[in-house]
């Protein structure tokens, strides 16, 4: 009996000390480039084939892993590691494309910390196809195009999409502004007309109406400028020239009170 007890105590001592020693020697989790070879990650189709109905769970696991990695990344993290993290989050996204968190995380870090807005945009685009009820994803894309890439047309397109999803007139106005900056007047008009139909608030309607009218003026003037260029082979010096050369009868009235003007080849109303 005593013998057995002794053996048990010794075994316990070994266990405790061994376990303690083991945890002391556990190497700290390092995030070196060698460890993060994106080619070591499994492919989506393989995972899908193996996981079946448990795919969302796998998506969660990859997201959690990605989140831990991301918390250790900063401005000086090498590009390869960002690529690795991107693959991890892509796995999380593709295992359950409806899962919102990977999109949010990618938007939070890729354009800002990693300075890779294009990656974020390409990542988010898949979400737009799945989370059709979610205005925020297309808003993110629109924002990234606007803020980081300065591609206004695309930006406007996604902001319109966002506005259409949650019937947000403010977003619509914003989108049309950006569209206008991108030189796409028609989209702006069409979109705002749509927004107008769904807006009941009189004040908001007036704001939108003003904008539509201003854009209509711009559209008319743009056409005239094109005509002018065709006739004279150069840009007009000012918009008044269009009237004096007889291309239009008079300049349209700008609802924003200031007259339309021509700046660096673009017609401005604000």
């Amino acid at each position: 009996m005593i013998k057995k007890g002794l053996v048990l105590i010794i075994a316990l001592l070994f266990y405790v000390s061994g376990f303690y020693w083991l945890s002391l020697n556990q190497p700290m989790e390092t995030f070196s480039t060698e460890h993060m070879n994106a080619r070591l990650l499994p492919s989506v189709s393989f995972l899908k084939a193996v996981c079946g109905e448990f795919a969302p769970l796998v998506s969660d696991v990859f997201f959690a892993y990605g989140a831990v990695l991301a918390s250790n990344f900063n401005h000086s993290t090498p590009k390869e590691n960002w690529g690795y993290l991107f693959q991890v989050l892509k796995l999380s996204r593709d295992m359950d494309p409806y899962f919102k968190d990977p999109y949010r995380l990618v938007q939070g870090i890729y354009p800002w910390i990693a300075k890779m807005p294009d990656r974020a945009i390409s990542f988010l685009k898949k979400g737009v196809d799945f989370r059709t009820w979610d205005a925020i994803l297309s808003y993110y894309i629109g924002f990234d195009y606007y803020f980081f890439s300065e591609r206004y047309r695309e930006s406007a397109r996604y902001l319109f999409m966002s506005a259409r999803i949650d019937h947000n007139p403010f977003m619509g106005t914003l989108a049309s502004k950006i569209a206008y900056r991108g030189g796409d007047v028609d989209t702006g008009i069409t979109f705002l007309t749509g927004v107008l139909k769904n807006t009941l608030n009189e004040k908001t309607r007036n704001t939108i109406m003003m904008r539509i009218n201003a854009l209509r003026g711009v559209k008319l003037l743009k056409k005239a400028v094109t005509e002018y260029k065709k006739r004279y082979g150069r840009m007009p010096g000012s918009l008044e020239e269009l009237v004096s050369k007889g291309i239009i009868h008079k300049l349209p009235e700008n609802p924003y009170k200031t007259p339309y003007r021509l700046e660096a080849g673009r017609i401005r109303f604000d």
Binding site: P56, L57, D60, F99, K100, D101, R104
Partner: peptide, 19 residues
């Protein structure tokens, strides 16, 4: 700890437990 979208995670998780 996993994410912000906790309700989705918990629903998926418990459905998988059923399976």
């Amino acid at each position: 700890f996993i994410g912000f979208d906790v309700c989705r995670v918990v629903i998926d998780f418990m459905l998988m437990a059923v399976s």
